[in-house]
Simulated assay, not measured.
Amino acid sequence: MIQCVPIFTDHMVLQQGKNTAVFGTGSPGETVTVSISERKLSASAVVQPSGMWQVQLPPATAGETCTLRVNDLVFQDVVFGEVWLAGGQSNMEFMLKNAKGGAEELKQCPEPSV
């Protein structure tokens, strides 16, 4: 039975403009097909003797939501965009709008989703 590692879920954001690795486990010799029909992306692999598999999807541009299919698994509301990792302590929870001058900075921001 084909499974993806737990980082693959509904509502995920995949990095735009880069190859996308999709991976997981399964029965050795089993064929895995990963596809996003809305983007006309598809790739296949065979589960290795170790039980691991990995597929590389070609780069995609940011855009509307799509559905990622891995054999019988379906991940909905998937988007390609910018993926950023931020690290810190409790200050990571502080909202820009509450920072000194933050409200003014947000008004000037050309990106409405910030």
Rank of each mutant, 00 (worst) to 15 (best):
A103H: 08
A60T: 05
V78F: 04
V70Y: 00
G17C: 11
T33W: 08
R39K: 14
Q89I: 05
L85F: 07
V83F: 05
L106N: 08
V79L: 15
I2F: 03
Q56L: 15
G87C: 06
L85S: 11
F94I: 09
F8A: 03
N91L: 13
I2L: 09
T33G: 08
V5R: 07
A103S: 09
G24I: 00
H11Y: 07
K100Y: 06
T25A: 07
E93W: 09
C66S: 11
G29Q: 04
V32T: 07
L57Q: 01
Q89K: 07
A21Q: 11
S27R: 06
S50H: 01
K107R: 13
V34Q: 00
S27I: 02
G101M: 09
V74N: 12
P28S: 06
D77V: 04
V70R: 00
L73R: 04
G102I: 11
L73P: 00
L85N: 09
A45Q: 03
W53A: 01
T65P: 09
Q16W: 02
F23L: 12
E105M: 12
Q15F: 03
E93G: 14
E111F: 13
N71R: 05
M92C: 10
P112M: 10
Q108P: 02
K107M: 13
K100S: 13
R39W: 03
P6R: 07
G88V: 07
S113F: 09
K97M: 09
F8N: 00
M92G: 12
C109P: 02
E104F: 05
C4H: 01
M52Y: 05
I2W: 04
G26L: 01
E82M: 14
G87N: 10
V74P: 06
A86M: 12
W53E: 00
C66E: 05
G87S: 10
N19W: 07
V78C: 04
K18R: 14
V74I: 15
V32P: 00
V70A: 02
G81S: 14
L41I: 03
V70E: 00
E105C: 12
S90Q: 14
M92E: 10
S35K: 13
G88K: 08
V70K: 01
S37T: 15
V114Q: 14
C66Y: 01
D77H: 12
E64D: 14
G81A: 15
K100R: 13
G102N: 07
M12E: 05
Q54M: 14
V83S: 10
V78Q: 02
E111A: 11
A21I: 08
G51F: 03
F8R: 00
A103V: 03
H11M: 07
L96A: 13
V5W: 11
S44N: 11
L96M: 10
Q108I: 04
E64W: 03
T33C: 12
K40H: 11
G87E: 15
Q3W: 01
K97R: 15
K97Y: 07
H11D: 11
G102Y: 01
V13S: 10
C109I: 03
H11L: 05
G87K: 12
R69V: 04
K18G: 01
P28N: 09
Q15A: 11
K40P: 02
A60R: 00
Q108M: 13
V47K: 01
M1L: 12
V5E: 04
P110W: 04
E105Y: 14
V34F: 02
K40S: 14
L68K: 00
F23N: 02
S35N: 14
T31S: 12
M95L: 13
K107F: 09
F94G: 11
D77G: 09
P59R: 07
T31V: 15
T20L: 06
A99Q: 10
